Amino acid sequence: MTPMKEDYLKIIFELGGTKKKVSNKQIALSLDIAAGSVTEMVGKLVQEGLAKHTPYAGISLTKKGIRYAETLVRKHRIWEDFLVDKLNYGLPDVHSEAEVLEHVTSERLVDSLEAFLGNPKHCPHGGAIPDKDGHYQEDSHTSLADTEDGAEVSIERFIDNHDLLMYLHDIALQIGQQVTVVKHDPFEGPVTIEVKATGQQIPVSYKAAHNVFVK
């Protein structure tokens, strides 16, 4: 399987495609690619029995696709945890390294690495880590962009994307922060939030708000 197909499986998994239909627009926003490219790749995943697509509704993973995605995500996120926790990598810098390492990691190695790290349940950007039997606590799939004005929520996780993580670092948005959604600006404008602990108001861009998940 090509790295690009694997990236699609992982992002559909991150967006909730194990339980619901994910739109082409969501995939395009998260991978920062054109919608036309998503349509083409979705067709290939369907042909290989990894995904199901319903016109005008979206795409979800099949059982085969879920198993494949869980294996990829498990290796990727355990390596991210190791890089941040043991090698002091910055959060925006771990994705590309983990992307390489996941493809050369055996099941024995990832099991040993997991035990060495104390069986972490979440990676540094908040995503759940499946255990070797495929068990994990389901992530929130409610994006900041889809949260109503006035709602008080906790920042749970970020999509694993280098540019996104750099942006969120620059605006000081962090996992675990309690925030209030102040307003959604029209015409794909930013979502303004207020951090409960400091009272600081932060405008979060339209694209970033679709890749930040809250509970």
Rank of each mutant, 00 (worst) to 15 (best):
K10G: 04
I11C: 02
I11W: 01
I12T: 02
I12H: 03
I12Q: 04
I12K: 00
F13S: 02
E14G: 00
G16D: 06
K19T: 12
K19G: 05
K20F: 02
K21Q: 12
K21V: 11
V22N: 02
S23G: 07
S23Q: 02
N24P: 02
K25T: 09
K25H: 07
Q26G: 05
Q26H: 06
Q26P: 00
A28Q: 11
L29G: 00
L29M: 07
L29P: 00
S30Q: 06
L31H: 10
D32V: 11
D32Y: 09
D32T: 14
I33W: 09
A34F: 11
A34S: 09
A34H: 13
A34K: 15
A35I: 12
G36E: 12
S37D: 04
V38D: 01
V38W: 00
T39I: 03
T39N: 14
T39F: 03
E40Q: 10
M41K: 15
V42I: 15
V42F: 05
G43R: 07
G43F: 08
G43A: 08
K44E: 12
L45P: 06
Q47D: 14
Q47L: 13
E48W: 03
E48I: 04
E48R: 10
G49S: 02
L50P: 07
L50G: 04
L50T: 10
A51E: 05
A51M: 01
A51R: 10
T54N: 11
P55H: 06
P55L: 06
P55R: 04
Y56T: 14
A57H: 14
A57N: 09
G58T: 03
S60Q: 11
S60M: 08
L61V: 02
T62I: 14
K64A: 09
K64E: 14
G65N: 05
R67E: 15
R67D: 15
Y68G: 00
A69G: 07
A69D: 13
E70C: 08
T71I: 14
V73R: 07
R74L: 05
R74G: 06
R74A: 06
K75A: 04
K75R: 14
H76L: 10
R77Y: 11
R77A: 06
R77N: 15
I78F: 05
W79G: 00
E80Y: 05
D81I: 11
F82M: 12
L83F: 09
V84M: 05
N88K: 03
G90N: 13
L91F: 00
L91W: 02
D93S: 11
D93L: 05
V94P: 00
H95C: 05
S96R: 14
S96N: 14
E99P: 00
V100A: 02
T105F: 00
E107H: 03
R108K: 15
